[in-house]
Amino acid sequence: MSKTPFDSSVFPLRHLLGIEGLSPLDITLLLDRANEYVELNRSVGGKLDTLSGRTVINLFFESSTRTRTSFELAGKRLGADVINMSVSTSSIKKGETLIDTAMTLNAMHPDVLVVRHGSSGAVKLLSEKVNCAVINAGDGSHEHPTQALLDALTIRRRKGRIDGLQVAICGDILHSRVARSNIHLLNVMGARVRLIAPKTLLPAQAERLGTEVFYDMKAGLKDCDIVMMLRLQTERMQSNFFPTVREYYHFFGLDYTKLEAAKPDALIMHPGPMNRGVEIASDVADDIGRSAIREQVEMGVGVRMACLEVLSLNLAAERPVADPNDSPVIDQGEHA
């Protein structure tokens, strides 16, 4: 299997913790690389050996099916040893702190940790305590960088560009890490971002992130090239974010009537998992001509291969030797 040589020194970061702070160059590099992997994944079976001998640990503190599987597949296609750890069933239940878990895993010398955690900032905290590269697979309501990258790749392949596009992100922006990562990425790549939601599901001063805010679907969708729907977390209904699913769907669910306001060739996206009949009508979600929802999943594997590759090439060839007197991790305090 052939692949183009790759200059790892181009990508400047040790971890991929978020989109915020990445340059258009960084993003383009990842997207170009991911695009090659998408083509490779389509044309040939079998494994690459790029990450042969490397260990990737999927450390998921929150349940996930698609993201974890996508990372697992990406690691295996690159020839890495991939281990899945679902922490909700493991040591966290026994009272181990996040940092202790990180320390334990660090001692096993993984090369890449792919981490999902329910608390914003937890992945960054963990990354400061380990020697390996860390990829954020979603932290709280903060960031989900690989989702934004795969969305960007989907858009670029369908529309040929990102620059200048009008993108609407609709739904539960307040709790969405997908929305935040996408806002950063789309802005830095030159798209114009709109947010559409009831005010209860919009974070304070959302317009300060470089977005235009709408409370009405038809007004917000007007002339949009891309319509990104977010999952409505119905468990939030009890906390007075919205009265009922029926009312939410009536005003903010994407159906063909509301979609008429967007451009005729507008692309419909959703990070999944979808609630049909809640934030999106089934017929819209399944519209082969307009919905890119399944394509997004496919792009996910290519994007994660690119991320794993780029970060592991930045790793030192030799693993650092653990030195108890010079731990980069724990403040030893007076015992040091």
Partner: peptide, 14 residues
Amino acid sequence: ARTMAQALLYASTF
């Protein structure tokens, strides 16, 4: 207070 704040926010959407 939280319910009233959410109610004001939600109502102002419309």
